[in-house]
Amino acid sequence: MANLIPVAKTVGSNKIVPTISIPYPLGNPDTSKEQQWKLRYHRVGVALDALTTDIKEQTVFTVKI
């Protein structure tokens, strides 16, 4: 789970789930606690599903929140 997708790609990560920034990957402090939680719960879920996904090449998984 990384914000800097180009860096994750360059170092050879195969399964990449985007996060929102460097200092706060999974919860923007300018948003409400509820919004932060929704985003974090969703993206961690995407990462868990990514672990079960069979891929053939470097893949950036899509997030909805």
Binding site: P23, Y24, P25, L26, G27, N28, P29, Q36, W37, R40, Y41, R43, V44, G45, L48
Partner: peptide
């Protein structure tokens, strides 16, 4: 800037979300 993660470390280490799963 460490402010956000110091206020809520789960924004970097999402233990709270993983526990719910």
């Amino acid at each position: 800037d460490p402010a956000a993660a110091d206020a809520d470390p789960n924004v970097i280490l999402p233990l709270d979300a993983l526990r719910v799963y």
